[in-house]
Simulated scan of single mutants.
Amino acid sequence: MILVVQRKRAGQVPQRHLDRLLDTVQRFDDALEACAGDPVLSRLLEQARVFSRAERRARRLEMIAHDPTSALDRYSIHRALVRALRAGDAEGAEAIGVADARGGISDLLRAPRSADDSPAT
Rank of each mutant, 00 (worst) to 15 (best):
R53E: 14
R86L: 15
L41K: 05
L21R: 02
D116T: 09
I2D: 15
H66E: 01
Y75D: 13
L109A: 05
L21S: 04
G103E: 04
R74M: 09
A80M: 11
D29Q: 11
L72F: 00
M63T: 05
E33D: 11
R56Y: 08
A65Y: 00
C35I: 09
R60L: 11
G11R: 03
G104V: 03
A93M: 06
I96R: 03
A115R: 12
L22R: 04
A99Y: 02
R102Q: 14
L32D: 07
L22F: 08
K8F: 11
A99E: 11
A34M: 07
A101N: 08
D100I: 09
S114F: 07
R59A: 03
A71Q: 08
H78T: 07
A93I: 01
V40E: 12
R60V: 01
A58H: 05
F28W: 12
L81V: 07
P112D: 00
D23A: 11
R57N: 06
R79S: 09
A84S: 02
G92A: 05
M1L: 13
V82K: 05
V5N: 01
R57P: 05
H17N: 10
Q15P: 05
G92I: 05
L61A: 04
P68R: 05
E55I: 04
T121N: 08
T69G: 01
G11A: 04
D38S: 05
T24V: 12
M1K: 08
S42V: 14
A90N: 06
D117V: 02
G88K: 05
V82P: 03
L41I: 06
E46P: 02
Q15W: 08
M1V: 13
A10C: 00
I105F: 13
L44K: 06
A111D: 02
L45G: 08
I64W: 01
E55R: 06
D100H: 14
A48R: 10
A80S: 11
Q12A: 14
A95D: 09
P68E: 04
V13E: 11
V5E: 04
R110A: 15
A34L: 09
E62R: 08
R7K: 15
G88H: 06
D73N: 11
P119T: 07
R56Q: 15
M1Q: 10
D100T: 14
G97E: 02
P112E: 01
K8V: 15
R7L: 13
I77F: 09
A90K: 07
R113Q: 15
R20C: 08
A87H: 02
D73K: 10
E33M: 15
R59C: 04
L41F: 09
R74N: 07
L3T: 12
S70D: 04
I2F: 12
S76C: 11
D38Y: 03
R113A: 13
D29K: 08
D107T: 05
R7E: 12
A71D: 00
G37T: 03
Y75H: 14
I105R: 15
S70N: 04
R60T: 00
P14C: 02
L3V: 11
I96H: 02
L44H: 07
A120I: 15
R83H: 12
A90D: 10
R110K: 10
L61Q: 10
A34V: 06
P68M: 00
L22S: 01
G11N: 00
A101L: 14
A34G: 05
G97A: 09
G104D: 01
L22Y: 01
G92E: 01
I105T: 14
D29E: 15
